[in-house]
Write a protein that binds this DNA or RNA. Structure first.
Lengths: 130, 130
DNA sequence: CAAGCAGTACGAGTTTTCTCGAACATAGCA
DNA sequence: TGCTATGTTCGAGAAAACTCGTACTGCTTG
């Protein structure tokens, strides 16, 4: 039975219509799948902060990219830029520029293809101080 | 039909009787299984030389530990000491002192217990220059 | 006992990485 | 027009890692 109350219109902040897949912004420069190197990937993952980032992306990224700020990391912005860049250049994440924001997601398929099991290890990891 | 020739006794070099399991030398200091940290392990594996060492141990170590020299690595001895120590302190290898020799093997069970799948990644890895 | 061998420990130089402030760029909004 | 929010680049200082020469230890063997 439908409600008879007058509808209330609420201003919803922050809803952005993301572009269709066809018109996604180009990814920032990144290594091709076949150029992924295990030693480089492992090196990028040997930093606890970056492990945190990747794990959070794996576990909580509901179907889309996330901005740098979404992670709630208590570090200066330039430090975050540094780490996100390290992840991208190692081939672990893909970054796209949406206007001002630069959003990241894990290259799940690529990593699973080249290093099967690796992402499971990261997902299972728990930081020292959660 | 047995040979009637006089038996020749040959000096066989380098046959050493290794101690019984019960009297294995104590392992050098290493982290306990429960103290293994993924970020540390990955850091130790982010060096191609060390990746090579671990992979060779995994693929070719027929049932026992190996000395530093067995790997045929073209580096000064002090460099090798450095890398073997890094592997041991990260918890990837166990080292035992047999007289003058210090032999290493991978802590397969420990690593599989804590980081299942990791060793497979290493075994599947191929270096840039094989 | 001297020589040779397997390997360590220390220390210095070099390179890499981390960390972060400062200055800048751009979009949205009042 | 100017403020705020997102995020970048540059550069410098600090910390860590790598590399390797030198000197040393402790067995074994002639």
């Amino acid at each position: 039975m439908p409600s008879t109350a007058r509808p209330v219109f609420v201003r919803v902040p922050d809803i952005k219509v993301l572009p269709e897949p066809a018109e996604l912004p180009e990814p920032l420069p990144e290594p091709a799948v076949e150029d992924l190197r295990l030693e480089t990937v492992l090196g990028a993952l040997s930093d606890p902060l970056r492990l945190r980032i990747v794990r959070k992306l794996l576990l909580e990224s509901e179907q889309f990219d996330h901005t740098c700020g979404w992670f709630g990391l208590d570090r200066p912005k330039s430090s975050l830029t540094h780490h996100f860049k390290a992840l991208r250049e190692a081939g672990i994440t893909r970054q796209r520029q949406y206007g001002l924001e630069r959003r990241s997601h894990v290259r799940v398929d690529d990593l699973n293809a080249r290093f099967p099991g690796l992402l499971d290890l990261i997902a299972a990891w728990t930081p020292d101080e959660p």
